[in-house]
Nucleic acid binder design. Sequence first.
DNA 1: TCTTATGAAGGTCAAAGATAGTCAAACATA
DNA 2: TATGTTTGACTATCTTTGACCTTCATAAGA
Lengths: 154, 154
Amino acid sequence: MNKSISDLIEEFIMSSLDDDDFIELSRNDLAKFFACVPSQINYVLNTRFTPSRGFVIESQRGGSGYIKVIKMQNNNNNYLKNALSLTDQPLNNMQANQLLDELNIRDVLTDRESSIIKSAINTKALNNPINIDNTLRSNILKQIIIELMKREEE
Amino acid sequence: MNKSISDLIEEFIMSSLDDDDFIELSRNDLAKFFACVPSQINYVLNTRFTPSRGFVIESQRGGSGYIKVIKMQNNNNNYLKNALSLTDQPLNNMQANQLLDELNIRDVLTDRESSIIKSAINTKALNNPINIDNTLRSNILKQIIIELMKREEE
DNA sequence: TCTTATGAAGGTCAAAGATAGTCAAACATA
DNA sequence: TATGTTTGACTATCTTTGACCTTCATAAGA
């Protein structure tokens, strides 16, 4: 598969996070390193290092500014709670998939379960007027998560 | 017999799949190779590489986009085949639940999986104008069943 | 010491570019 | 004529780029 620059930047940041819970980076330096414009770094952060994937971004502007990418440390049963709160907002397909990947990685969902749910909330399945699409996706996810929480209680 | 361009494209993709379970291709490149318009690739995929023939298509648009043609691993399961054909019609909540119970009884779905899917296609989740509701439910179910057929049985 | 100016970050947003998807009309063939 | 194929205009989605905006540390000046 042909990787885009954004994919490469994502991989770079991801692997920097292998050993640590956070990294600090300089937007300009990273952009220089990948020979792209600085705002592309923001694009990658906004599309790939999202709350639904378990990341938080902190940053500071001005002299000695920085960007900090932080991996959230949830203890196990908070993953569902966190996911539930994310369904209060409309989620696009990518965000929803990220959320499900995260639940899978955290062993809240099996591979099969996360794939099943991804199929259910895919753009292809929810073939509706665009403006209600993302809301519908969140609705469906919310019901699923509530069901999962119910089952965990037992 | 005189082969059409579509037949040739079909053969090309088919033989690429001889050794692998999936291939990734670029619509534009393939169209250039066969000197046809890009949308003819879609025509071939839609008419020849369908779920009922044992294939799934995944794709991504935009920069470094792709089309992935995947051979299903589990498309001979009669319960899944039957379920798939039922999704050609709109299904109300009760009909869908029956279908899922049946798949559960036949060990195609675990308890948890069938509960998850029931939550996803519940009236509460699909909070839409009633007339499109049942169609939406079938659509979602169809995508899920295709996903199940795609995957190796566990 | 306090205030202000300056330069060095990072942020936002919309346009342009790169793919793929849809659909219906035109065409071809059985 | 009915069915399957080819074409292209229009649409949708994801990525890349750049102009313009905001914030902050610190050096310069009062």
